[in-house]
Write a protein that binds this DNA or RNA. Structure first.
Length: 684
DNA sequence: GAGTTTCGTATTTTT
DNA sequence: TACGAAACTC
C-alpha cells in the first residue's frame, strides 16, 4: 500500500530476531483460546497483528484459514500487504476484509444459507432515497417534532447496531438523550408512527432485493446465532479470527464474533482510549467485558510507545488525565525526548493554513519528505482552505476521508444502468436512469416504475421504455439494450453505456463534464476489470466505497505527498510532523456534541488519537475567530475545561505562540503572549 | 409536469 | 459555502 504507512521499526528494543519486545512477543506467541491485546497508541498494535498472522502461518496454520477483520478497507489492505511482503513466496494469502465485506462474501458464497440469490447492496444515500419514497418526500411532523427521512434511517441503524429498543433509539437520535417529561410524552406518541414507517422501509427493501450496510451484518449474525449447522459450516473454513480496532466494534458486530468464538480462536487488538466511533454504536464493553464474555480468554497489555517523543506523550497523557473516565493508561516513550509540542494561535484559517504550508515547505527544503507531514482535522470541511493553499503553493497532497467516488452524481448515473440490468426491481436505479433524460421528471418516472414492476425480464421492460415520451426516447432503450448485449464483459459494457449517455451527461453537467467528470470513466472501467459478475462489482464497490485502491495500481503509490486526513480516517497513521487543525473553543469538543458528557469524552478521545499520531513534532493550531463557536447548548454543569480541552493546559507541556497576521495590517494582540494566564479563551 | 432560479439554512465522524 | 427546498417560468 502507500509507503508512508510503513512503520519504522528500527528503533525497537530488540529482544529477539523478530524485533518484538517482551509483551509483544507474549502476545504474538499466545497459545490459549482467545486473547485481547490492549495496546495504547503507538505501542505496535498493527505490528503485533501482523506478527501474529505470520507466527500462526509458521506454526502450520493455512493462511486462508486466518481472517483479519478491520474497520476500513485501507487498514485491511495495509495489513494484508505487509503480511504478504513478509513472506512473498506464499501462494495463498490470509483473508483481510472489513466486517461488511467479509459478511458480504459469506452471503454471496452461501446464498442458500441466507436466502439471497440476487441482491443489491445500497449505500447511505440510496437508503435515504428509499426512505423518501416511503415518507412521500416530505418531512414528517409529529407533535412539533420534525423528522427527516435521514433521521428515520439513523434511528433504525442505531437500534440495529446497538441492539437498543425503538424508544431508546428515538431518544438518542432525535432528542440527543435530552429527556424531560414532555419529551417522553412526545416519544410515546410518535413511536407507533415511527415504527410503522420503519417497517415499511424494511418491507420495501425486501421487495426490491436491497440489502443496506446493516443488513449485511445482521443477516450473517442472525444465522450464526440461530443455526448451528450454518455456524459449523462457516467456521469450518477458518481457524483464527483476528480483529483490529476492537474498541470501535459495536454490539451488532459482537453478535457476529461471539458465536464464532465457540469454534474458532478470537484474537482482538484495541485501545479504549481510541474509541471514536460511538456515533456508529461502538461500545467499549466489547473490550472492558472481554474476559467475562469469553471463557478461557486472556488479556495482554502493551504500554511501551515506539512512535512519539516523551513530550508528545506528556500532552496526550495530560489530556486523558483530565477526563472523568479512567483510562488507566500512561504511555511511556521508548524513543526518548524531543521538542515541546507547539500551540499556535492564528487570526483566521488562511493564516493558519499558510503558516502550516510554509512550515512544510521549509522542512521539505531541509530534506524531509512531504509525506513525513500529516495534517489532521476534525472534519473534511475544515481542510478546504488548506487544500487551496496547497494548490497555490504547488504542494502535492492526498486527502483521506470525505467524498467518495461512488457518491459523485455522474458515477451513479452510469452505474444505474448496470444496476437495472442486475436487478430489475431496483427502483432507485430506475428513477435515477429515467430522470437524467431531458423531459422526464419524477412524476413520469415513478408512473413508469410502477408498470415495470409487473414485468420480469429486461426485454419487456425495454419495450415499455420505448413508450416514454422524451426527445431522446430511442436512446433510452438503446442504452439498456447495448449494455445488456455486452454484459459478459464489464469494461466493454460500461464503455457502451458511457457512449450512449455521453450527450445527455454533457448537457446535465455542462460546466465540468468534459474537463473533470469524464476523466472518471477510465477509472471506473479499469476498476471493473477485476470483477467477474455485475453483482459482485456493484456490491463490492458500494461496500468498499472508495477507489483509493485504484490510484495505487496506477503507480501513484510512491508519490511524495502531504497527507491531509480526518482524524477518523487517520487511525493507524503516523508521521514525523503532525499538524492538528483548528483546536479552538467550539471545535474540541465540537459544539454539536456537548449535549452529553459521553459525547464530550468521545471528542476528547478524537483529539487524543490526533495528538498521538506525531512522532517527533507536534503542532496544534487554533484560531479564535472560528465560525464553529456556538454556545447554544452550554450547560451550567460543565466546567470550562469540559467545554474546551486546552482550557487549562500548563505552560511546561506546550509552547504557546500567537502568530501575528502577516497579510493584514492590524496588530493589537497585546494579550496574545500573556502566557501566565490560562490558555483558554472566553466564549464571548 | 419539467426545468430553472433564488433563497435560506445549517455546517462531524464511516461501512 | 454548499446544498436543499420552495417559488417561479415554460
Amino acid at each position: 500500500m502507500f509507503s508512508f504507512f510503513k512503520k519504522e521499526d528500527s528503533k525497537q528494543n530488540v529482544s529477539d530476531i523478530d524485533g518484538l519486545n517482551k509483551s509483544q512477543r507474549k502476545a504474538v506467541e499466545f497459545d490459549g483460546d482467545h486473547l485481547l491485546v490492549l495496546a495504547g497508541a503507538g505501542t505496535g498494535k498493527t505490528k503485533t497483528i501482523i506478527s501474529r498472522a505470520n507466527y500462526l502461518i509458521k506454526t502450520g496454520v493455512a493462511p486462508n484459514r486466518i481472517v483479519i477483520l478491520t474497520f476500513t478497507k485501507k487498514a485491511s489492505n495495509e495489513i494484508v500487504s505487509r503480511i504478504n511482503s513478509d513472506s512473498d513466496s506464499r501462494n495463498v494469502s490470509v483473508i483481510g476484509s472489513t466486517f461488511h465485506s467479509w459478511c458480504n462474501s459469506m452471503i454471496s458464497r452461501y446464498p442458500n444459507l441466507f436466502g439471497t440469490n440476487s441482491y443489491t447492496v445500497i449505500d447511505s444515500s440510496d437508503q435515504v432515497s428509499l426512505m423518501k419514497l416511503i415518507c412521500g418526500n416530505k418531512n414528517l411532523i409529529f407533535e412539533k417534532t420534525k423528522i427527516k427521512p435521514q433521521k428515520f434511517i439513523d434511528i433504525l441503524s442505531y437500534a440495529r447496531n446497538t441492539k437498543k429498543n425503538l424508544t431508546d433509539s428515538i431518544k438518542h437520535i432525535v432528542f440527543d438523550n435530552n429527556i424531560d417529561e414532555a419529551v417522553q410524552k412526545t416519544i410515546d406518541k410518535i413511536k407507533p408512527k415511527v415504527e410503522e414507517i420503519l417497517k415499511s422501509y424494511q418491507k420495501k427493501k425486501k421487495e426490491r432485493k436491497y440489502l443496506d450496510y446493516d443488513d449485511i451484518i445482521v443477516i450473517v449474525a442472525q444465522r450464526l446465532n440461530n443455526d448451528d449447522d450454518a455456524l459449523r459450516r462457516i467456521s469450518s473454513t477458518l481457524s483464527h479470527l483476528l480483529i483490529d480496532e476492537m474498541q470501535d466494534t459495536n454490539p451488532l458486530q459482537w453478535d457476529l464474533i461471539y458465536p464464532l468464538s465457540k469454534l474458532i480462536k478470537i484474537y482482538c487488538v484495541g485501545d479504549d482510549a481510541q474509541s471514536i466511533y460511538g456515533f456508529r454504536g461502538a461500545d467499549f464493553k466489547n473490550i472492558n467485558e472481554f474476559n467475562e464474555r469469553l471463557p478461557n480468554s486472556s488479556i495482554i497489555k502493551l504500554e511501551d510507545n515506539y512512535r512519539s517523543t516523551q513530550e508528545i506523550l506528556d500532552v496526550s497523557n495530560w489530556l486523558l488525565s483530565k477526563s472523568t473516565f479512567k483510562y488507566n493508561k500512561i504511555l511511556k516513550s521508548i524513543t526518548g525526548n524531543g521538542d515541546i509540542p507547539k500551540l499556535l494561535g492564528f487570526d483566521d484559517t488562511w493564516e493558519e493554513s499558510r503558516w502550516i504550508i510554509d512550515k512544510v515547505l521549509e522542512n521539505h527544503q531541509n530534506g524531509l519528505k512531504y509525506k513525513d507531514h500529516l495534517v489532521l482535522s476534525r472534519s473534511m470541511f475544515y481542510t478546504t482552505t488548506l487544500q487551496a493553499v496547497c494548490i497555490e503553493n504547488k504542494v502535492p497532497f492526498v486527502v483521506f476521508g470525505g467524498r467518495s467516488f461512488m457518491e459523485s452524481a455522474h458515477i451513479r448515473d452510469i452505474l444505474s444502468v448496470l444496476r437495472i440490468i442486475n436487478n430489475l426491481d431496483d427502483e432507485i436505479a430506475w428513477m435515477r436512469f429515467l430522470t437524467m433524460w431531458d423531459g422526464i421528471g419524477e412524476v413520469t418516472a415513478s408512473k413508469f416504475v410502477e408498470t415495470i414492476y409487473e414485468s420480469d425480464d429486461l426485454k419487456s421492460c425495454i419495450a415499455l421504455v420505448k413508450n416514454i415520451q422524451s426527445p431522446n426516447s430511442h436512446f433510452l432503450s438503446k442504452t439498456l439494450n447495448d449494455a445488456f448485449d455486452k454484459i459478459s464483459s464489464l469494461d466493454k459494457c460500461i464503455e457502451s453505456i458511457v457512449n450512449n449517455l455521453n450527450n445527455q451527461l454533457k448537457r446535465n453537467y455542462s460546466e465540468d463534464w468534459d474537463q473533470k467528470r469524464k476523466g472518471d470513466v477510465p477509472v471506473l472501467i479499469s476498476l471493473s476489470k477485476s470483477f467477474k459478475s455485475v453483482q459482485e462489482f456493484l456490491n463490492e464497490i458500494v461496500i468498499n466505497n472508495n477507489f483509493g485502491n485504484l490510484e495505487m495500481k496506477d503507480g501513484e503509490k510512491e508519490k511524495d505527498c502531504l497527507i491531509i486526513s480526518t482524524i477518523h480516517s487517520a487511525k493507524g497513521l503516523e508521521a514525523d510532523s503532525c499538524f492538528v487543525l483548528n483546536v479552538s473553543p467550539g471545535s474540541y469538543p465540537s459544539s454539536y456534541s456537548i449535549s452529553s458528557i459521553e459525547n464530550i469524552e468521545e471528542e476528547r478521545r478524537v483529539l487524543y488519537v490526533a495528538l498521538t499520531r506525531a512522532k517527533r513534532k507536534l503542532y496544534i493550531t487554533r484560531n479564535m475567530n472560528s465560525t464553529f463557536v456556538n454556545n447554544n447548548f452550554i450547560d451550567e454543569d460543565y466546567t470550562e475545561s469540559d467545554l474546551y480541552f486546552l482550557h487549562d493546559i500548563k505552560k511546561g507541556l506546550i509552547d504557546y505562540q500567537q502568530i501575528k497576521a502577516s497579510h493584514t495590517n492590524y496588530q493589537d494582540n497585546d494579550e496574545a503572549n500573556d502566557f501566565d494566564e490560562s490558555l483558554g479563551m472566553d466564549y464571548n
